[in-house]
C-alpha cells in the first residue's frame, strides 16, 4: 500500500473498529461513505446513500450477508445490487437498483478505499510492509490534515507512513482528510509493543490533537456550561 497521495487511496478506519456484521460511517473530503463488514469478514465501502430514498446506509444494519437500509429495509448484497425489498417479498429486484461500491483494500490494520474512479491499485511500501501493526486508536482532529502530517513527521505528500518516532519502536500513522479543517488520525504500533507503550501512544495522539487544534484556533474544553 502506498502512503502517497497517488491513486486516491484513503485510510478510513482501523480494521479492529469494524466488527463482523456491522456498518459504520466515514467521510472523505466531504463525501459520506458507509463502511461495512459482511459475515465472512470482507469489508465493503459504498456511498452513504440508499438508492431508494437517499437514507444514509451507515444507519442501517447487516443481515444475511447484505446491508439493509434502516428506512424501508431494502437489502443490498456485496456487489451493491438490491437483493430484497420487504414490502414486495416475491419481487426479484431489477439489477439497475444498486448501491455504489468503491474499491476497498485492507492491510496494515486499516480499511482503505479508493474514492477516485480509476484509482490505481495500491503499491507496496517497504517500511509499512516490514512490520505487523497493532491498533492503538483513531482520533478526530479539528485541524487541516496537512498540518497534522507535518506535526507527526509524515514524509511530504504522504497520508500514511511508518514513523521512527523514538527508540521504542515504529509507529504507523495514517491521516484521513474528513473535510476542510478536519481529519482523522489513525495510530498503530509495530508488534510486539507492550501495553504501556500502547497507552503512551494513545496519550501522544491526544497531545498531537491538542496542539494541532490550538494552532487551528479550535479548543474543545469540557466544563460546566449553562
Amino acid at each position: 500500500m502506498s502512503g502517497t497521495c497517488d491513486g486516491g487511496w484513503y485510510p478510513l478506519m482501523l480494521s479492529a473498529d469494524l466488527e463482523l456484521g456491522t456498518v459504520a460511517g466515514s467521510t472523505v473530503l466531504g463525501r459520506d461513505l458507509a463502511v461495512w463488514r459482511d459475515g465472512e469478514g470482507q469489508a465493503h465501502v459504498w456511498d452513504d446513500r440508499c438508492p431508494h430514498r437517499g437514507m444514509r446506509l451507515s444507519l442501517g444494519f447487516v443481515r444475511e450477508g447484505a446491508l439493509a437500509c434502516l428506512y424501508h429495509g431494502w437489502r443490498f448484497g456485496v456487489d451493491g445490487r438490491c437483493v430484497h425489498i420487504p414490502a414486495h417479498p416475491d419481487l426479484s429486484p431489477p439489477g439497475t437498483i444498486r448501491a455504489a461500491p468503491l474499491p476497498v483494500a485492507e492491510c496494515h490494520g486499516l480499511v482503505w478505499a479508493s474514492v477516485e474512479e480509476d484509482g490505481s491499485l495500491p503499491e507496496g511500501d517497504p517500511a509499512m510492509d516490514a512490520a505487523a501493526w497493532v491498533p492503538v486508536r483513531s482520533l478526530r482532529i479539528e485541524a487541516p490534515w496537512q498540518d497534522v502530517a507535518r506535526a507527526v513527521g509524515m514524509p511530504d505528500g504522504h497520508r500514511a507512513a511508518a514513523l521512527d518516532r523514538d527508540v521504542e519502536g515504529r509507529v504507523l500513522a495514517a491521516l484521513l482528510p474528513v473535510r476542510e479543517g478536519a481529519c482523522m488520525l489513525h495510530l498503530l504500533a509495530a508488534a510486539s509493543a507492550g501495553v504501556e507503550r500502547l497507552h503512551d501512544l494513545a496519550d501522544w495522539g491526544q497531545d498531537v490533537r491538542a496542539r494541532a487544534e490550538e494552532r487551528a484556533g479550535q479548543v474543545f474544553l469540557a466544563g460546566v456550561v449553562a
Binding site: 492503538v136 486508536r137 497507552h199 494513545a202 491526544q206 479548543v219 474543545f220 474544553l221 469540557a222 466544563g223 456550561v225 449553562a226
Partner: peptide, 18 residues
C-alpha cells in the same frame, strides 16, 4: 456549549481507548 459538549464526549472516548 458545543465545544464543551464535544470536549465531554472526548473525555469518554479517551477513557474507553485506554
Amino acid at each position: 456549549r458545543r465545544r464543551a459538549a464535544v470536549g465531554a464526549l472526548r473525555i469518554m472516548e479517551d477513557h474507553l481507548v485506554h
